[in-house]
Write a protein that binds this DNA or RNA. Sequence first.
DNA 1: ATATGTAGATTAACAGTGTTTACAAAAGGA
DNA 2: TCCTTTTGTAAACACTGTTAATCTACATAT
Lengths: 215, 215
Amino acid sequence: MGTKERRERERQEVRALILDAARELFATAGYEAVTMRMVAEKIEYSPTSIYLHFRDKQQLVQEICEHDFCSLAAAFQRIALVADPVERVRQIGLAYVDFARAYPHHYRLMFMMPTPPKAPGEVCHERGNPEQDAYAFLRLTIEQVQAAGRLRPELEDIDLVTQMCWAAVHGVISLHLAKGADPWVEWRSISVTAEALIDSLNRGMFLPPVTTGAH
Amino acid sequence: MGTKERRERERQEVRALILDAARELFATAGYEAVTMRMVAEKIEYSPTSIYLHFRDKQQLVQEICEHDFCSLAAAFQRIALVADPVERVRQIGLAYVDFARAYPHHYRLMFMMPTPPKAPGEVCHERGNPEQDAYAFLRLTIEQVQAAGRLRPELEDIDLVTQMCWAAVHGVISLHLAKGADPWVEWRSISVTAEALIDSLNRGMFLPPVTTGAH
DNA sequence: ATATGTAGATTAACAGTGTTTACAAAAGGA
DNA sequence: TCCTTTTGTAAACACTGTTAATCTACATAT
């Protein structure tokens, strides 16, 4: 009989209810401002009920973030079609910025808060983790830049170059998310700053394309 | 009679006691992990006493950070002596990294947490604010790069260039402070990454020195 | 010397947090 | 009908930052 299946389905429905309510709250107010009691009240359950589905607040918010990171992965899928690897690096940076602008609170949670020291038992090298995948995707693209002979020869450490690119774009985003409200700096927009930085960095790291047919 | 002066002196002593105790705690454990009760216990006063000297936790930690930022300002004083403005930009970046490595929790508090929306009455454009001064110092140096004809002509917006430089270095630091413990990336050290990024960015933003005497 | 005012420090409490324990109620299986 | 498992909750716990009320010590004024 399908009673077991139905029970499981109902369980997942409540779980989804929690996730949706929490997503909306976290996305508009941020981690600290949202309390478990708020989430509970929004779905008209008791606060304790949340703990039947999620270990703690941290796990709840993490699940939301990981889910929403799919939109970033989708953007990356599209970028994979771009032929020129140097242009692809550029596009990755811009997509990263777009994601941060669309989900600033998610971005803050994923990349601006210290990672909790994973319980030693937990699996670390799982695939499908979007953060990890994004890094791998960028790294692969940089490798292809190198393979195309477009990477400056002194930049031989692929991981280093990957981290340089990531850090540069991350810097623009995180600086704006943290300090963008400060009035004593005439802030340029995230997009403008990020694009200018990506372009300057490209010029400093990559080489112009070799024109085939030249002697 | 000097009783008033003595009282005031005693008051400042207690205030300094609080600041020292709080500095040590915040520096080793970070903002959230330190409670007012911990600070109070460390100096053997009641928690309430702290509020006789500081409006709230936020103001306490802010005062500590602003004070310790003097060491960054001191480093900048030394850099001001370097002749080549392009090299000066480089040195500013490296000093910034050194500061972040020496005071990671301070850095986190000053640059990685959203600035509280200042009460409208508060003075905003005070001088002596180290954050503000650091920005002004970097901006001035970039202006001097431009004056020396070493800035690429398409980069005409000085504030934009300043923010690009700041964001790049900040990105390396903040990414490490937030994600440096994650095991699924083979992290290069902050110093190595920052230096490589600064160098690549220099190549992409600045021009080689014009050799005098050439036609 | 005695009363007064005041600044410093403390105790107790408030309103909130994330989380746990103990208990109730409902529902499926025997 | 009884039993077990699941689902939900009220109450409590151990905290947090912060405040109100109180007490104490001391410089000053009478």
